[in-house]
């Protein structure tokens, strides 16, 4: 049990450092349900509970896609929902990430048929996949850690950063982390 706690603490510290470095302790997440059974939503809500306390790591939930860096998508992408999902994604500013969350989103529950695309990447460009039915809050945290790394790659690939003469990647993040 002690070893587990130590591993958890190390992972949390690493995640906190990355979020602070990349996003000035402020990475905002928007959730999107495209046909889930409601279990993934409950696990996502529990990320803010005292056992996990997502805020201590520098993550925050936002109700507005225009303020979001990351879209946490659950469900198998119902075809009737695709327009709403696309509009949500398009409303987010660059750089942005899509995290497919749970077995439905990954294609493990529903096939591609008349009702659903069967997986989130039928409509949205997925960057990170979090398996589980539903993924536990710890699995979600692990997925967020991976996602932060992917977002860092996207940030470094942005044209205004690539053109910067003095290594703007570090500059762009150092101010926020101060």
């Amino acid at each position: 049990m002690t070893a587990d706690i130590a591993i958890e603490e190390r992972a949390a510290a690493e995640l906190r450092r990355e979020v602070a470095r990349q996003f000035g302790r402020s990475l905002h997440i928007r959730t999107l349900d495209t046909g889930s059974c409601a279990a993934c939503e409950q696990e996502i809500r529990l990320l803010a509970a005292p056992h996990y306390d997502l805020h201590r790591l520098g993550f925050f939930f936002t109700p507005a896609p225009r303020h979001a860096d990351m879209l946490l998508v659950t469900g198998p992408m119902i075809r009737a929902f695709a327009v709403a999902a696309s509009k949500t994604y398009e409303a987010m500013p660059e750089p942005k990430l899509v995290v497919a969350t749970g077995a439905c989103a990954l294609g493990g529950v529903y096939p591609d048929d008349a009702f659903t695309y069967g997986r989130v990447d039928g409509v949205l460009p997925v960057d990170v996949w979090i398996p589980g039915c539903p993924p536990s809050p710890l699995a979600l945290l692990q997925g967020l850690l991976v996602a932060v790394g992917r977002l860092a790659e996207k940030v470094s690939g942005l044209s205004f950063i690539a053109r910067s003469p003095e290594g703007a990647h570090e500059d762009a993040t150092a101010g926020g982390a101060a």
């Binding site: 495209t34 409601a38 936002t62 896609p65």
Partner: peptide, 10 residues
């Protein structure tokens, strides 16, 4: 809606 607040169903 159908997209609503954080962590709730659509």
């Amino acid at each position: 809606g159908p997209v609503r607040q954080v962590g709730v169903e659509s």
